[in-house]
Design a binder for these strands. Sequence first.
DNA 1: GCAAGACTGAAAAAGGTCTTCAATATATAT
DNA 2: ATATATATTGAAGACCTTTTTCAGTCTTGC
Lengths: 157, 157
Amino acid sequence: MSVFSHKPHHHDHDAERFVSEVVRASRERGLRLTPLRREVLELLAQADKPVKAYDLLERLRDRHGNAAPPTVYRALDFLLEHGFIHKLESINAFVYCPHPADSHQVPFLICDVCSSAVEVCDERVAELISAQARALGFKPQGQTLEVHGVCSDCREA
Amino acid sequence: MSVFSHKPHHHDHDAERFVSEVVRASRERGLRLTPLRREVLELLAQADKPVKAYDLLERLRDRHGNAAPPTVYRALDFLLEHGFIHKLESINAFVYCPHPADSHQVPFLICDVCSSAVEVCDERVAELISAQARALGFKPQGQTLEVHGVCSDCREA
DNA sequence: GCAAGACTGAAAAAGGTCTTCAATATATAT
DNA sequence: ATATATATTGAAGACCTTTTTCAGTCTTGC
């Protein structure tokens, strides 16, 4: 079963709200959230867990039979650039960002069992690491913070 | 100029010492640091900055004309597994670990100008992030902590 | 309306990693 | 020492991930 085919559950509401929030933010900032970009965003929001580029591509082809890799990568680039989604470098996957309004740099907890990924909404790690970097004369500009392990749901099972 | 072709400088000594330390650790732990694995390790130590798998492969071919991708990836897997090197997920590159004796999880500062990468030898970030993860019921097993930016050397120039 | 810039389609290539199977070498247990 | 099991390497190839390029289309701003 694909990450997309799932019964409605409590997260669908979050997904919809998230998409409308991005729509609004794009309007405010004068960004062009084109149909293509929006579709990719919706796919990510519906999946509610990290998705790989080729899974997105496959899904896009349902409605755009001609979609090629650059189609999805360009949309992802746009969404990344404006902070609407994140890329998880350690698993080459993309995930929507539940609070795209405030720019932030937070760690992700990636479950190696169910492959869910949640943000740790706490800037302390990012701040500590930035402080340590600056203390070494390094000017920090971006962070990749990913923790692998087993989430609480999977530990119970 | 490749990352390998460089004049001798103060790091060469570190590189040699690092390799012998790994040789010793392997003996102690009963690991088979075969000639191939050792060669990859030496290439990484000499480079003194992150190196991509295909650059290593190219270099390996100087002495093993038959080397194929799995040749280098298998050696890298071995070295990673035993903590002798690190993989930088955000740039798909590998770097030797200056203190392979003590297992550790530390952030890397990756300069986007000169592409150097240094470890921040301070476990506080890893501990904080682990504590936050556990507080959420998540059992942490591995971390990817990478900060991009500009190193002090490059800021001066 | 027109020029400049932004976005998409299409083809291809480059870059990165893994699977498989056979051959060889090393370690273990008689 | 020999046979067996295990680990390592060679070789071919596939698969996954990402980018480049060029041409065409759409928007935006003048």
